[in-house]
Design a protein around this nucleic acid. Structure first.
Lengths: 158, 158
DNA sequence: ATCGTTATTGCGAATAATTATCAGTGACGT
DNA sequence: ACGTCACTGATAATTATTCGCAATAACGAT
């Protein structure tokens, strides 16, 4: 879990807005948030922080690798705390719920493909889209929104 | 390669704007184009087609599965003719060049992961980012921009 | 602790990409 | 050839995000 000292390490002053935004990302029940989500959460807590600041800070956090930015379908950015190891995402197109997973076979194979192509791999983004069980059966998403399950393949995380 | 009759099949009238946009996607030397790219190409050819129409038509083409929409980093959509089989992309972060590939192992594994998560998969996006051979060695990209190489794993395409 | 420098913030305006509105036009079945 | 209705073009509207700038607050030096 990123801490205050990570801000300094990244050359960022430890200001109140940055600390508050970091805390929201850490404590939110929703793991993937848009800038607007963060902003609204701040407003609900009675904090006085401008939307532009939220955008700025999130971008700084991304540069400092404290958060990861995703561009899911639809184009708008969502941010996720970079606290656990690397993982990919499977998103329900119906209800928008997000599963996380990390599959060693896929990870290895990506490197193999890069080698074949003469590339030195330095990042990737993988998003699977589909309909989750809950939406298919009952039309209601059954996923516990609080704790996202992580599927790790036999070999564990990368 | 999509043809005029594919428009009818998709329930779209074969109008001049649609045919022209389709032709541009087929004949362009650049495989991945933004709506703006298509619009400018039209203007350069002296065609009188509104930007809004380009957006509309591209979205219709996407729905009809004549084109594929990608959301690369940065958020703006790029469109690609859906003429060959499915493939993923490996992008050089240095020179922006795009390789295409299709790896059966990854494809299969994605389906496996979806099953585990209780999802019915219906799409995915996979982008690998790295440095291509040419950029690492000579600082110049050696990839022939016209014809993108396709790496197919042993089993051939999906 | 106080002070000064300089990064940071908040606000509102600006931009970029895309979508909506709507009156006029053209494709297509009859 | 005709009438209907999907389609188009121009423009306004939206959405997401960034910019510009004056006011403010961190943090090191005194």
């Amino acid at each position: 879990m990123p801490s205050n000292s990570d801000l300094k390490k990244a050359g960022l002053k430890t200001t109140l807005p940055r600390l508050k935004i970091l805390r929201i990302l850490e404590n939110s029940s929703v793991r993937h948030m848009t800038a607007e989500d963060v902003y609204k959460t701040l407003l609900d807590s009675g904090e006085e922080i401008g939307l532009a600041t939220v955008y700025r800070v999130l971008t700084q956090f991304e540069t400092a690798r404290l958060v990861i930015r995703h561009n899911f379908e639809g184009g708008r950015s969502v941010f996720e705390l970079n606290d656990e190891g690397h993982h990919d995402h499977i998103v329900c197109s119906e209800c928008g719920e997000v599963f996380e997973f990390c599959d060693r076979t896929i990870e290895e194979r990506q490197r193999w493909v890069s080698d074949q192509a003469g590339f030195v791999l330095d990042g990737h983004s993988l998003y699977l889209y589909g309909a989750c069980e809950g939406m298919r059966k009952s039309g209601k998403c059954s996923i516990n929104k609080r704790k996202l399950p992580t599927i790790l393949s036999k070999a564990g995380r990368d």
